Simulated assay, not measured.
Amino acid sequence: MFDLFFKKLEDRISLTDAEKELIKSHLIPKKLRRRQYLLQEGEVCKYAAFVTKGALRAYTVDEKDNEHIVQFALEGWMISDLYSFITGEPATYTIDALEDSELILMSQASRQELMQQIPSFLQFSYFQIQNAYIALQRRITDLISLSTEEKYTKLIKTYPHIVERVPQHMIASYLGLTPETLSRTRKQMAKNK
Rank of each mutant, 00 (worst) to 15 (best):
D3W: 05
D3V: 09
F5C: 07
F6W: 08
K7H: 14
K8A: 06
L9C: 03
E10H: 02
E10Q: 15
R12S: 13
R12M: 14
L15C: 11
L15K: 07
L15F: 11
T16V: 03
D17Y: 08
E19V: 06
K20T: 01
I23R: 07
I23E: 10
S25P: 00
H26W: 01
H26S: 10
L27M: 14
K30F: 04
L32E: 08
R33S: 13
R34K: 15
Y37E: 08
L39G: 08
Q40Y: 15
E41W: 05
G42R: 14
V44G: 10
C45K: 05
A48L: 11
A49Y: 08
F50T: 03
L56W: 07
L56I: 07
A58T: 05
Y59C: 11
T60A: 12
E63G: 11
N66V: 12
E67Q: 13
I69N: 06
I69Q: 04
V70E: 06
V70D: 06
V70N: 12
Q71E: 04
G76H: 12
W77H: 13
I79F: 04
S80D: 08
D81A: 13
L82D: 05
I86D: 00
I86H: 03
T87Y: 04
T87D: 07
T87V: 08
G88I: 07
E89I: 01
P90D: 10
P90I: 14
P90F: 15
T94G: 10
I95M: 09
D96Y: 06
D96S: 06
L98D: 09
D100E: 11
E102H: 14
I104R: 03
L105G: 15
S107Y: 02
Q108E: 04
S110R: 01
Q112G: 06
L114A: 00
Q117T: 04
S120E: 09
L122W: 00
L122A: 10
L122H: 06
Q123L: 02
Y126F: 12
Y126T: 06
F127R: 03
I129F: 15
I129S: 05
Q130C: 15
Q130F: 12
N131V: 09
A132E: 10
I134V: 09
A135S: 12
L136P: 07
L136T: 10
L136A: 13
Q137V: 12
Q137L: 13
I140M: 14
I140W: 06
T141G: 06
L143Y: 05
I144N: 12
S145G: 05
S145L: 05
K154L: 14
I156V: 10
I156F: 00
K157G: 00
T158Q: 12
T158A: 11
P160I: 00
I162H: 01
V163G: 00
V163Y: 00
E164Y: 02
A172M: 07
Y174V: 05
L175V: 03
G176I: 04
L177S: 09
L177E: 06
P179Y: 11
L182V: 04
S183K: 07
S183T: 10
R184E: 12
T185C: 13
R186F: 04
Q188F: 03
M189W: 01
M189D: 03
M189H: 02
A190S: 03
A190V: 01
A190G: 01
K191E: 11
K191F: 02
K193T: 03
